[in-house]
Design a protein around this nucleic acid. Sequence first.
DNA 1: TAGATTGTTAATCGATTAACAATC
DNA 2: TAGATTGTTAATCGATTAACAATC
Lengths: 215, 215
Amino acid sequence: MLNVKLSSLPSIKRLPSYLHVIEAFQRDGREYISGTLIADELELESIQVRKDLALTGIVGRPRLGFHVAMLIEAINRYLDWHNNHRAIVVGAGHLGTALIGYSEFARHGMQIVAAFDANPSKIGQTLMGVPILSLLDLAATVEQQGVELAILTVPSASAQELCDILVGIGITAIWNFTNVKLKVPKHVVVQKEDLSSGYAVLSVKMAKSKTASRA
Amino acid sequence: MLNVKLSSLPSIKRLPSYLHVIEAFQRDGREYISGTLIADELELESIQVRKDLALTGIVGRPRLGFHVAMLIEAINRYLDWHNNHRAIVVGAGHLGTALIGYSEFARHGMQIVAAFDANPSKIGQTLMGVPILSLLDLAATVEQQGVELAILTVPSASAQELCDILVGIGITAIWNFTNVKLKVPKHVVVQKEDLSSGYAVLSVKMAKSKTASRA
DNA sequence: TAGATTGTTAATCGATTAACAATC
DNA sequence: TAGATTGTTAATCGATTAACAATC
């Protein structure tokens, strides 16, 4: 995985939730929003919100806050969500199908051009307009459509094998939804989405909350 | 959301990936595994792995490493993954269905007893043996089956409304897969699984990798 | 024994939070 | 104007990393 230093991973992770709040404000027709307000909405500290927003280069106005439209623009630009990324889904199971259906991603530059599956009975069908193709068409699709991102939603057992194929045909970014630590060359970006991590945190929180309420 | 101090969230999040590596070792019939080895496998620093494992109370043996079976046991105990948690899935769409199918969770104490959906045509069907019920059956199911956890995979627009219902019928833990910040009483644990965060990080990484390779 | 690995204590690093002047 | 909010600089906190003695 490429090892470029990212300025503050935690901050980047919080920006989408800010965007969500700000967009709700925009729908309400508000022109300005303050960091304090965003913080209250998300149960964060206002200083944290201000620091995070400063990353995007936005400049606010004392007393008023930030111009809503400009702030949305600044966050999207910082996250590179205003540019289009062509993507494929590899593994057209339920998770892959769910991701294809997320308008959230589509609205922020992720354009899924095709899904791929090993199951012959799925091939030829479409999921919300996205065709399911055979793995034999992988290389041609990636080349012809200029695909840069592969979303990997296959069973763990086939994850590394498919990863190798993807890297071999020129994919440079993989969103990995399997629990396998993928081995890739240095120039390939891998983002692992780890649901087990979330379950671990949830489980520990639940256990602590039980002992706390017993006390 | 209940605010119990958790010792080192980042460490807790890493433990499942360690478990994954260690279990692969166990399948290979190995009796001991060193922190160094786990670290190499996951491209982490061995000192970090050792520190994280120390949380679980496991004691290793110099030169040999950690006893595989004991280590698995220690991690599962620390994460409270050896205890059973009855759960329901609220929103039987593709994401909910995908989660029901994750044997990973089932193997670690999460027992999904039912799914719920507002769509009448889905009600009465089963997903991998899990029945899809009407929301009218929510309260009775939670009470009769001793459900503690609700996995929320509904459209964002209905998230808060369903959350309120869930809290009202005694649910004390919610795994929130929507992008809505849920408002809950203090005694309720909420774990938000934020795919947009992941997409933000991925997008920024991809952008940086492009500028880096141009340089 | 020699050498790899653990576990502990200390040092470093980075993120969060606090304080406050500047602004409108 | 008074007061809320920004943006900057400094302080604190917590997590990661380093160093190294103890161990088998």
